[in-house]
Simulated scan of single mutants.
Amino acid sequence: MGTQQRKQDSLASKAKVALTAIREEGSSATYRETESTVKDSEQSFRLLFDCAPDAMFVANIETGIIEDANQAATRLLLRSKEEIIGMHFSMLHPPEMLEKTKEHFHTHILQSEVNGDLYPIEHFALRSDGKAVPIEVMAASLTFDNSKKLLGIFRDISRRRQMEDELRESAMQLTKLNMALEKELDEREKIELELRNRKARFETLFNCMAQGAFYWNQNGGLSDVNPSALELLGLSREQFLKSDASSPLWKVINEDGSELPIEERPSSFVLRGRPVREKIIGVFNPKTGAYVWLAVNAMPQFRENESQPAEVFVTLHDITDTKQMESELRKSQENLEKRVEERTLELQNTYGQLLHAEKLSAIGSLSA
C-alpha cells in the first residue's frame, strides 16, 4: 500500500512537472509569437511613417514635446529631424496663433480618445525660414511604452489654397464677365429694339410713300417694291419680283421717244457703282396702255469692306403731268409763235400797203 502510494505520488509529481513544463513552453511560444507580431507591427508602422507623403509628428500628450518625425516633416518645416525632435508642438506653428494651436491640440486629443473620429482642421505650419504654410491637420492618440502619444498628420494644402484662390479669382472674373455680358446683352437688346423700330418705321414709310421705290440686287434681280411703284408701272407684286432688267415687261424710252438700252438704264449704271440723279425716262404701263414719265434716282448700297454694290435703291417720281403740261406749254408756245409770225406777216403786208397808198397819194398830189 505504501509502495503503491509512493508510485502514485511520483506520477502526480511528474505530471505536475510535465504540466508546468508544457505551460511554460506554451507561454514562451505565445510570448515569442506576440513579440514577433509586435516587431512586425513596429516595422510596418516605421515603414509607413517614414515613407508617408504627409508630414507626421509623434508628440507626448502630457508634455507636448515632439518625440519623432518623418522625412516629409523635415521637408515641410525645412528642418532636420534632430532639430524637430525635442521641440514643443506649439513651435511647429506661427507664434501669433499660439492660443488657436493649443485649442487645436486639445481638440485632436478629445476627438481621437473620446469620439474615435478624425476630423481635419486647417491651420498653419511655421517653416525655418519664417514662412507660414497652410496645412490640414489630423491626429490620432497612440500608446507606446505605456505612454500616450499623439500622432499628428500635417498635409500641405498650399497648392489647394492656390487653386482655391485661382478659382475665386476666376469666379470673380467670371462674375465680371457675366455682368459685362449682361450689360452687352441689354445694350444689344436695346439696339435690336431700336433696329426693329427703325425697320418698322422704314417699312411704313416705304409702303406709304407717294413715290415709287424698289430694290435691285447685285445679280440684276428685283428684291422688294412698294405699292406706289407697282401702281406707276402697272404690275402686280408677283410680276414685278419675277422680272429682271431684260424682261419684256420693261419698255423704257428716252425723252425723245427712242428706246433706252438696258446698259444705259439707271440700275445698270448704279450696279457699276455710279449713282443716278433725276434721270428722266418713260416706262410703258400695260394697265393704262400709255407711257408714264418718271424722274429716277438710284443709289448704290454697299456692305462693309465691299467695293461693289450689294443692291440698288431706286425711287420713281411721277412727272407725267409735268411732262404733259410741258408738252401743252410747248404746243401753246408754238401756236403763239405761229400766230405772232402770222400777225407780224399781216402787219408787214398792211404796212406795205399803207406805204404804197401813201406813195400813190403823193404822186397824185404832185401831178395836180
Rank of each mutant, 00 (worst) to 15 (best):
K16Y: 08
K190A: 12
L193C: 10
E122Q: 12
E82M: 11
L19C: 02
E184R: 11
R330I: 14
R155F: 00
A210D: 08
M299D: 11
L271F: 07
K39W: 05
E169P: 03
L260K: 06
A21K: 13
D318C: 09
S41D: 10
D318I: 09
K39C: 06
T204Y: 09
L271T: 00
E326P: 04
E96W: 14
R343S: 00
S112Q: 03
S367Q: 14
Q353E: 07
T20S: 13
T288A: 05
V270P: 01
I135Y: 03
T63R: 13
K331V: 08
Q43S: 13
Q211F: 10
I319D: 04
E166R: 09
F45N: 05
L260S: 02
P286Y: 00
A200F: 05
Q5W: 06
R23D: 12
I280D: 04
T175C: 09
S10V: 07
A132W: 10
Q173V: 06
L177C: 09
S10Q: 15
R155E: 01
H93W: 03
N219M: 12
Q239R: 10
L150A: 02
R343P: 00
L235C: 08
L345M: 10
E24C: 10
Q333T: 05
A295S: 15
I262S: 03
I135C: 05
M209H: 01
R75S: 14
R75T: 12
E187M: 12
K331P: 00
R127P: 01
S332W: 08
M87S: 02
K102R: 10
N217A: 08
I191V: 14
L48P: 04
S13H: 11
K323D: 06
D318G: 05
R159Y: 13
Q8T: 09
K279E: 11
A15C: 05
A59W: 02
E103G: 07
N349C: 04
G212M: 03
P227K: 05
R161G: 02
F124Q: 11
Y31R: 11
N60K: 08
S267Y: 06
N70M: 09
R343A: 02
W216Q: 00
F214R: 00
D117E: 15
A200M: 06
H88W: 11
P286K: 03
E103F: 13
M1I: 08
R198M: 06
V133E: 02
M97L: 14
K16E: 10
A73Y: 01
S41Q: 12
A180D: 15
Q5M: 11
Y291E: 00
A55Y: 02
A171W: 08
N146F: 14
I121L: 14
E346L: 00
N197W: 06
K323M: 15
F89D: 02
H356F: 08
K251I: 11
L294I: 15
W293Y: 12
K176Q: 11
Q71N: 07
K199C: 05
F57H: 03
R303V: 05
L230Y: 04
L76R: 00
E326A: 15
